[in-house]
């Protein structure tokens, strides 16, 4: 007998003496928890997102669509970045105001090459206000997972209010499970040394989130 059969056989025997239960899944779990916490208007939800992002040490910026290229150019300049990774489907106009060297997000690029790039600019799939989370789903304007991991400086653009939801349940409902997802809540951090929080271990040590649009 192979181990698959062994394990499934053990499971079935383990459950054999427990009374029969054919409650369907949808009825087995009562979901009396909230779909979102508190009642907020759109503007308040965006405000909460900004607050919670900042609380976990993301640097939050706000502008309208026209101001976006200027803000991005400014952040790259302030950082002193010489190069930036650009996902294939990123709106070209976003980088119109900067002449920093573009590095395409390509499959052939090695991790070592990526390690030499200063910054990365991406969009996101959804942002969750209650937890201060941005979620990337590998879409064309977000690129491969590793481009937002290896460079030390990540600029992420969130279109508000369209991409903002209140809660984790609402966020999950908007996301496609078959896509590889990265949920980001502030820059990487560790509390492994005497539970002192230190920002920035392996992921980008600086996370800048630009909330673009008017609410």
């Amino acid at each position: 007998m192979n181990s698959r059969d062994v394990i499934l056989g053990r499971v079935r025997r383990a459950l054999a003496e427990t009374g029969h239960d054919d409650t369907p899944y949808d009825q087995a779990v009562e979901r009396s928890y909230l779909r979102e916490h508190g009642e907020r208007g759109v503007a308040e939800t965006v405000e909460l997102l900004a607050e919670n992002l900042a609380d976990y040490r993301a640097l939050v910026h706000r502008c309208d669509a026209d101001g976006l290229p200027g803000v991005i150019a400014g952040l790259l300049a302030e950082r002193g970045s010489a190069s930036v990774v650009v996902p294939p489907g990123l709106d070209e106009s976003w980088l119109a105001d900067t002449d920093v060297t573009r590095v395409a997000d390509r499959a052939e690029t090695t991790p070592h090459e990526l390690d030499r790039v200063d910054s990365v600019v991406t969009a996101c799939a959804v942002a969750i206000a209650e937890t201060g989370t941005i979620v990337l789903d590998g879409g064309p304007d977000q690129g491969r997972r590793r481009i937002t991991l290896v460079p030390d400086h990540h600029i992420c653009v969130v279109r508000v209010p369209d991409q903002v939801v209140s809660s984790v349940p609402q966020g999950l409902a908007r996301l496609a499970p078959e896509r590889p997802l990265t949920w980001i809540s502030g820059p990487s951090a560790t509390s492994d040394i005497e539970l002192d929080r230190v920002e920035g271990v392996h992921g980008p040590r600086t996370l800048e989130v630009i909330l673009v649009g008017t609410v």
């Binding site: 919670n52 976990y56 499959a107 969750i128 209650e130 937890t131 201060g132 989370t133 590998g138 491969r144 997972r145 590793r146 984790v168 499970p177 078959e178 896509r179 590889p180 997802l181 990265t182 949920w183 980001i184 809540s185 502030g186 820059p187 990487s188 951090a189 509390s191 992921g203």
Partner: peptide, 21 residues
């Protein structure tokens, strides 16, 4: 666990993705 609203990173993956990972 860490007493945070959300931990800094959560990754989800489903099988393999072409040219990513």
């Amino acid at each position: 666990s860490t007493a945070e609203r959300m931990n800094p990173y959560t990754s989800t993956w489903t099988g393999t993705t072409d040219e990513d990972g």
